[in-house]
Simulated scan of single mutants.
Amino acid sequence: MNLSKSKGVKKMPKVILGNIVERIKDKVDKDNTDLEFYIGGEHFDYGEVQITKRAAIAGSTIGPAFHMRFQPGDVLLMSRNPHLRKAGMVDFEGICSDVSYVCRTKNEMVLLQSFLPFVFQTDSFWEFAEANKKGSTNFFLNWSDFEKYEFILPNIETQRELTELLWAAFETKTAYEKLLIHTDAIVKSQFIEMFGDPQTNPMGWPIKCFDEVATVDANMTTDYEKYADYPHIGIDSIEKNTGRLFGYRTVKEDNVISGKHVFGPQHIIYSKIRPVLNKVALPDFEGLCSADAYPILPNVKICNRDFLAHVLRSDYFLSYILAFSSRSQMPKVNKKQIGGFKLPLPPLEGQEKFAFFMHMGENAKLKLQESIDSVNTLIRALMHQDFTN
């Protein structure tokens, strides 16, 4: 069915976002609430229409800016760094900070709430956001800026048809993403089978200090002209737990003005900010990364890069490093603390066998990602025809 030719779509005039969507300001005291969960910027996924990640308020280090209540069905729109395309619907209740806008339709007979996240995840919406952002390095938009966005809104009948198709496509994509998680679980199981639990070291591998197997290669530069066209990896461009790199731009595009670390495909990028997020990346290119991350250079004579990255993503390392960051408002770890980590180190030959298995898993994930990308293309195509005709 060609939805672009559905009744009334082409005759539909442009609408202004602020006329049909409102920002909800339902303030709560995070220290005196029955609500259990909060959503921070790290819980949004690039370009996704649903937010499924969250964290417990109790025991967290979130600040006073986290005081906006959201309810199931609300759509959250992140006002910072629009190139990361952070906006999605929630199906649970909680709080977010005041830099995440809680959005609801003003009239379900004009705009379906279930259609709103797809409006936000159109290319035209984020192009508008990029064109109207403020700031020099930490870009942002006020709600009054977002309110001015104009777009073609299909009639309510077409919205219902589109919403059914779009959410069905999203569910298909979710199934593929579950297979990605399962693939990671298989790799973790293979690690345990080959080397045992590093916490108990049942196979008796020699224990090495981190500084014996790798170095924090903090080569800082401010030569923005030389590296203008190189990728710039900020912390927000590293996916938690998986280390997938996404949404990054060049040094020039990000208007970098502070010192950054130089890295290459021989490095591991480790985020030293909020280590609970477990951001460990394996780049296959050269670039600059945030000073809030460390490029780690393994000693290739005794330690395989992929093996070490897997250890750094493990619960074993996480339990060690979190002991240094639990009491800070903005948790951070330093080189000395990382250098004090000790790990069982199997022979290099065994590490390389595991790295081969790990790469097989990555290849399987690439094929799954291609399927996910195909579904994303379908979603964009469905939205494009109705928002541009």
Rank of each mutant, 00 (worst) to 15 (best):
V187W: 00
S314P: 10
V213Q: 04
C289Q: 10
N2V: 08
V110D: 10
A175L: 14
Q199Y: 13
E177M: 05
V187R: 08
S374C: 14
L165H: 14
V28R: 14
N255W: 02
S124N: 11
P13F: 01
Y270I: 02
L179M: 12
A129H: 06
R313H: 03
E157R: 03
I238R: 09
P202H: 06
Q266N: 15
A293Q: 11
F357H: 09
A323S: 15
K148R: 14
Y224M: 05
D315V: 09
Q351H: 05
S100A: 12
D145Q: 06
D236L: 06
D145K: 08
V251P: 05
K86L: 01
M109N: 15
G59C: 08
F324W: 07
L378Q: 08
F317K: 02
G73D: 11
Q337S: 00
F354L: 03
P295Q: 00
I268N: 04
V15T: 13
Q50F: 13
H261S: 12
K335Q: 15
H359C: 13
L3V: 12
N81Q: 13
R244D: 07
M12L: 08
H182D: 12
A214K: 03
L277D: 11
R313E: 02
Y320R: 04
E157P: 00
I156E: 07
K86H: 10
